[in-house]
Design a protein around this nucleic acid. Structure first.
Lengths: 245, 245
DNA sequence: CAGTGTCAAGAGCAGTGCTCTCGCTTTAGG
DNA sequence: CCTAAAGCGAGAGCACTGCTCTTGACACTG
């Protein structure tokens, strides 16, 4: 990140960051669609062509912003998950996986509400003619990894409902679940499957809230969100008070 | 729709439709972002300024396309729901609400896959600086109305699991659920709440599939989708074989 | 100190949404 | 039936966009 070998390198890194900052501000103000390289350069007091020294195209700038957004959201989720663990180590309260799961979900929603346009950038419709480079993927999966980590811990501590009522997946689905299972060793397939369901539900609900789809029904969505998160936590097998204490 | 009072009126309606058709084709090809009035006018062999006689702005054209998309999807859902009822009236097979629910969900996904860019238009990130006019709302809720209708029928026929385990909603949530309840008389609040959850899950999953978020995990999403729809049908209280036969 | 690569600047191209004016045609009303 | 009004397409033009190319100045490197 730093690696400021020469003054020029440092200046370049600094300006690159500055460009992204201005872009993020414009993003928050007008949305991704209206993001204009010329407007950014104007705000920076430079000429538009100079921007191309730092980002070869508008799409490249957007890609950088997308990766940053994924990483920002991912680190928020990771931090919350870790904080829950720490609060356990020092206090008497046990590390309830269910409450950790719920805290992560609420943190994701809060970040989305605080960075609406950045959220739209990563979970809205993809930019036209834009192919997500492979580099974004490792940043994109961080939230999912955190959620799977919570379940893995719960499983290890015997706090996970096996959900035996559900049938084991088979065929293609079994193979796909096996891929997910690599991030959550020991967690039963039925739970993993439900986790993916909860994952899509979480972001579906956040998107609906932010995109105005909940208008005139669940509009102030706080109560609905809280209730749903509770339901989905139970859905994935994180029961209330299982083996607590 | 027709109301071809004068020749000019008819020509106008025809051209309006033609513009939307061309726009839809461009939408499918390049996405909403790249939709260009000039390109449309070029393809229509007219000058760009003439388009403004039919749509006052680009956003108005998009609004028209959005309403059309909502209506198209809504009527697909309604048709599937009605067809399931009819197939009952003539045949011996009972009108299983669960299978109707599942059929509707699959139809929605199929439409989304067949009209990806139109789907993105209505369920992706909102167009920048664009406020959904109130007229879109009644078109937007049609799918939800259909799903609630299935539950209402199930309730009326005693095929709905009351889900008594769940607690009754209270406070703000109770009021919001009451609004939803107007479209589904007789259905218990807990079921309604879960229906909204399933609704957000459905579109969250479809969006994730279309927006490439499922890549490298559930990528060919058919099996996952089918399994999830089954799970969510149970989740809302449409049990397999409840009171069947 | 000379050379090399980096830099901001400027001009310019092709494209965009949108406005305004201009004639022409169709419609509606007396 | 004839005229005024309204609707129509064409064209020019404005302000803006992303992006390319060239130019001349600067800073770092050997």
């Amino acid at each position: 990140m730093n690696a400021g070998r020469t003054a020029r390198d440092r200046a370049r890194a600094e300006l690159t960051q500055e460009i992204k900052d201005v872009a993020r501000r414009q993003l928050a103000a007008d949305g991704a669609e209206r993001l204009s390289l010329r407007a950014i350069s104007r705000e920076l007091g430079m000429v538009s062509s100079a921007l191309y020294r730092y980002f070869p195209s508008r799409d490249d700038l957007l890609t950088a912003l997308i990766i940053d957004a994924y990483d920002a959201l991912g680190s928020v989720a990771e931090k919350v998950s870790a904080a829950e663990k720490v609060s356990v180590a020092e206090k008497v309260s046990e590390p309830d996986p269910r409450s950790t799961w719920i805290a992560v979900c609420h943190a994701v929603r809060q970040w989305a509400k605080d960075h609406q346009h950045e959220y739209m950038l990563i979970y809205g419709s993809p930019i036209a003619g834009y192919q997500a480079p492979a580099t974004t993927i490792q940043s994109a999966v961080r939230v999912a990894i955190v959620l799977l980590g919570v379940l893995t811990r719960a499983q290890r501590e015997g706090r996970l409902d096996p959900l035996e009522a559900a049938r084991e997946p088979s065929g293609v689905l079994a193979e796909q679940v096996a891929v997910v299972a690599r991030a959550a060793p020991g967690v039963p397939a039925t739970v993993l499957l439900r986790t993916v369901v909860a994952w899509t539900q979480l972001f579906g609900m956040i998107s609906f809230e932010l995109f105005g789809q909940l208008a005139r029904t669940m509009d102030p969505a706080d109560a609905f969100f809280a209730d749903t998160i509770e339901q989905m936590a139970t859905f994935v097998g994180l029961n209330r008070g299982v083996a607590a204490r």
